[in-house]
Structures are given as C-alpha cells and as structure tokens.
C-alpha cells in the first residue's frame, strides 16, 4: 500500500469539496482497502464518508422509498419493508459476501464495487479497466468467468455484484450528488459497457457521490437466484433477478436482469419478451432463460456462462411462481 493522507469530512458539501486527483472516497472500505493492498488502487488521499450524515438519510414511507447510500447492506436487508416488499433485493443482499462484510459494506459502495477479474486484481498484468489503453489480458488468458454479454475486445470482465442486478429488475434508481447538483439515474443506466474505454465504469464523474438508492413501489412479485460453485461466500457465476406482474399464472409484465455473466447488470428484453403475456410454465421459464442468450454465438469459453445464466433466469422465474 502507498502512503496516503486521510480526511474525514463531516458533511456532504465538505466531502464533495474534498474530491480531486488521486483522491478516493471510502465508505465501508471492503473494496477500497482490498484493492489498495493489491496496489490496484494507490490514492494519495483517502476521504472517509463515515461521518456524512446525509448518506444515512432513509425514508421508508415515501414513494420512492429512499435508502441512504451509507446504510450498510446488513441494515438494509434487516428492514421489514425490504424483506416484505422487495424480496429480490433482500435475497440479493443476503446472498452477497459474508455477514461480516455485509455489516460494514454500504449500499453505495456495493453498487460501485470493482470486477473480480484476476487480471484487473493483479497490478502486474495489463488491464484496460485499470490502466486506460492497456490490452485486455483476460481476452488471451484464462478467465473462466468471462462476460458473455456486453463484452468488448477491450474488456471481458463481468460486473460482480448481486444487489445492482436486483435493483435493475426492480427499476430502482440512485440519487447522486455532484459538485453542482443532485441527479437521479436509473440503476440500469448507471453502468457503462466497456466498449473502448473500460476504465469508465459508470456514468458518474470521479468526484460524484451516490447519496441514496430509490425504490419505486413494487409491482407484483420478485425473486433473485444466485448460482456459484459453492453454497455461500462466493461471487455469482450467474445470477438473475426477476420482477413479475402475474394474473394468476399469466405474466402481465416482466422485468428480468442478469448478473455475473455480463459486463454490467444486464436487463434482458429477450427474456422478458419470451414470458410476457404467456403462462408461466416450466417450459416457458426454460425458454426465457435460453432467449437471454439467443443472440450469443456459443464458444468453449462462454459455455459455462450461458448454461448457468440461462438456468438462473429459469430458476428465478419459477421462484416467482412459488416453486
């Protein structure tokens, strides 16, 4: 780790003013400290957001529901409102990381977590996401879990998180403060595909701070399914979040998002079309999973991602049906 100065602003205005070159904000720190120790992040200044009260502002009785970005994942998942009305979100948080990490990681920090691509995490490997202009090492190397959807010749690293996937299916937004104003961005629009600039991960500027997650009133039911090699404490090999409006067993409207298999939380209009207006049978749920990857050419490298991504969608749809 390189030496750095530490600042601890006491309000949002001070925090925004502290932004600058070689400066990194730190909330729970579970990503930032990890990457600093790997020499992947090497800020000269670290700005702690722990005392910024605005980031804790939560309004459960509004529409949308507002969860402060500085609320921890454990606190959010424990809210009865979240558990009852947004089951996909509760499940996505419950299945993320470990209890210890959920106790400190914040909602805002979780959304902005970095990819787990081992080349990104290895400071000695070229990586365009880490160093603009570098070639993608994973493209020629071994990345078992390469993004099947949204990849470019410059980056094939999957977005690792679970919560953002659920938020996309729930059509949630984030509120962010910039130096000039407060903006609201749909979570579905927050993340960029790598294209030829993989280092630009979100539509936010470097000095902006996510201040809240905004949840619209739920429509219908929702579910989140996470597939991985072991039963717990692992990133998703594939995940799917589904929010469904059902009329008995007929799908009136579907919002389906995938994780672990795409460069950003991925909303699949193909999967949604495959079930919309249809009876939600196992066959239909299976077809929806396949539809999400219809446009993807099968290769040896993406076989695992496609198989698990498709089945995650199927399982999440069936979970909405109640089994």
């Amino acid at each position: 780790m390189r030496p750095f100065e530490y600042a601890r602003p006491s309000d949002l205005a001070q925090a925004l003013a502290a932004a600058g070159p070689d400066t990194v904000f730190i909330a729970g720190g579970t990503t930032v400290v990890d990457l600093m120790r790997l020499d992947v992040l090497a800020p000269r200044r670290l700005v702690g957001l722990g005392d910024v009260a605005e980031l804790r502002r939560t309004e459960l009785d509004g529409d949308p529901v507002r969860l402060g970005a500085g609320v921890t994942m454990a606190e959010a998942a424990a809210l009865p409102l979240v558990r009852e009305r947004y089951p996909a979100l509760a499940a996505a948080i419950d299945l993320a990381a470990s209890a210890q990490i959920r106790n400190v990681a914040t909602l805002g920090g979780n959304l902005l977590q970095k990819t787990r691509c081992p080349y990104f995490r290895d400071a000695s490997s070229p990586c365009g996401r880490r160093r603009p202009g570098d070639a993608c090492s994973a493209l020629t190397g071994h990345l078992e879990q390469r993004a099947v959807l949204g990849a470019s010749p410059h980056c094939v690293a999957p977005y690792p998180g679970d919560m953002a996937v659920a938020l996309v299916a729930l059509e949630a937004s984030v509120e962010a403060a910039t130096a000039a104003k407060v903006v609201t961005v749909q979570v579905a629009d927050l993340f960029r595909e790598p294209g030829d600039a993989p280092h630009k991960e979100t539509v936010l500027g470097d000095g902006d701070i996510i201040t809240a997650v905004l949840l619209p009133a739920p429509r219908g039911t929702s579910a989140f399914v996470k597939l991985r090699d072991r039963a717990s404490f692992a990133f998703a090999a594939a995940s799917a979040a589904v929010s469904l409006e059902l009329d008995h067993d007929r799908v009136v409207a579907a919002r389906i998002a995938l994780g672990g298999v795409a460069t950003r939380p991925w909303r699949s209009s193909e999967a949604e079309s495959a079930v919309s207006g249809e009876r939600l049978t196992p066959e239909r749920a299976f077809a929806a999973g396949e539809a999400a990857f219809e446009a993807v050419a099968r290769t040896h490298e993406n076989r695992r991602g496609i198989a698990l991504g498709a089945r995650a969608v199927t399982a999440a749809l069936l979970a909405c049906r109640g089994g």
Partner: peptide, 20 residues
C-alpha cells in the same frame, strides 16, 4: 473477525483510522 461497535467485522479490511 472482531466486533466493532457491537457487530462482527473483518479487521483486515478496516483501516484503523476509519475506526476512530
């Protein structure tokens, strides 16, 4: 794993300055 302010956390991922 230790407890900070009553909850279990990972002491390797916390900078001491942030536990002020």
């Amino acid at each position: 794993t230790v407890h900070v302010d009553g909850v279990r956390v990972l002491a390797c991922l916390l900078l001491a300055v942030t536990v002020e």
